[in-house]
Design a protein around this nucleic acid. Sequence first.
DNA 1: GTCTCTATGTGCGCTGCCAGACAGAAAAGT
DNA 2: ACTTTTCTGTCTGGCAGCGCACATAGAGAC
Lengths: 230, 230
Amino acid sequence: MAATENHLIELLPRKDRLRLLTVCEPFELVLSETLAEPNKATRHVYFPITGFISRVTKIGKNPALEVGMVGREGMLGAHLAQGVANAPLHALVQGQGMARRIAVVDFRRELVASLPLQRIMHRYLYVLMAQLAETAGCLRYHQIGPRLARWLLMSQDRANADTFPVTQVFLSYMLGVRRVGVTGAASELQRDGLIEYHRGHLSVLNRRGLEAAACSCYAADKQSYRKVLA
Amino acid sequence: MAATENHLIELLPRKDRLRLLTVCEPFELVLSETLAEPNKATRHVYFPITGFISRVTKIGKNPALEVGMVGREGMLGAHLAQGVANAPLHALVQGQGMARRIAVVDFRRELVASLPLQRIMHRYLYVLMAQLAETAGCLRYHQIGPRLARWLLMSQDRANADTFPVTQVFLSYMLGVRRVGVTGAASELQRDGLIEYHRGHLSVLNRRGLEAAACSCYAADKQSYRKVLA
DNA sequence: GTCTCTATGTGCGCTGCCAGACAGAAAAGT
DNA sequence: ACTTTTCTGTCTGGCAGCGCACATAGAGAC
């Protein structure tokens, strides 16, 4: 079941889960597709199963900066459980794959009907906040290398694969640095045999090593998730 | 009423507000006092009226970094409405003054009893998330000067006064920079006649000018608050 | 009045990252 | 085949902020 269902849905009691699944439709996450924009009413919520999504914020004229990642462990659209119709951030597909999708009307109805669903949404939102705070500190204090390693690990977890498509330009947007900065950090990771990449395809060779190279935020995020969403 | 009540409490319908007020006790916010620590069960929630509180995150061995501010417009302890007992962040008193305080048991009871209270907590949490994301971007892209201006404006709003006690060392912690960096930025603001300070006492002389000097995040935060918590 | 502590201002060398530009090489389109 | 686009690596100059160290001066303690 692990790779075929979204983790938040798995956490629901059987009855609530089955109810929710009846209103879900399968949805293909297509690379680079935008799934949410701030100040626009959300139309669907998404529960990724194999693909994953980036939450990004835009500050002034700077390119989008990633502040969160959503994979099988999370969802997009939890703000509906807070009684707010508009998404707080941009969200775009980052790793292609499948997700479950629910129309807002249906999801609202399920929320009212299912206390466990509410409960899980709220706890997930708590984790998101903790991770946002962590990310803020990470942006301030950590350097490109460790942040890149962290990003790769987070991606690997959610992509459920050791190889995934990603270019340096793209990484430079996610991390909010110049592409050249990524080149430097990435070639160092490659030199150390932790990763291997070539024209848009990247493989993780040594996960342990990458974990050691990543900043503490990777472990911190995992832990806060585990604590709150058993 | 504006300066004698917490804004979130004001938003409650009369009946719910009166109920809540019966379990509130007045609490003096003493400078530098710690009100919350991560991974410790929250004992009280706080609704500031005149003082204000900083939310800070600790990353590794770096000094605490501010990621949010709580004054009359907000509260400390909203995570209880998410069904989580532990605070996500450190919180310490930043501007002395008065607050309303409620013991956790009482607050939980009120939450169950009052849907409007739940609703306001959830909406407030949404605003917090938006502000956290904004702060993350701010930390990445904005320079000391504008960030300092932003911080001073946020403080002034919550302190409800043009003069408040604050040293450069302290500001350097909040902003996550060296004290020397604050010295530079602050003396520039002073030279331009926007502020005046002397040995731990700072006055805002020209609010308009300070708003112009601040980064966009100040306005963005205010707007996201206004949109969600009318 | 003197001493000590705290707050503020400066100088110096360093580093991590930025901005912009360019080059080679692999993929994709024709 | 050729051309064009995309991806990656390298260089040069520059700046914001860092770490460290030191100087000055106001405030409070004795």
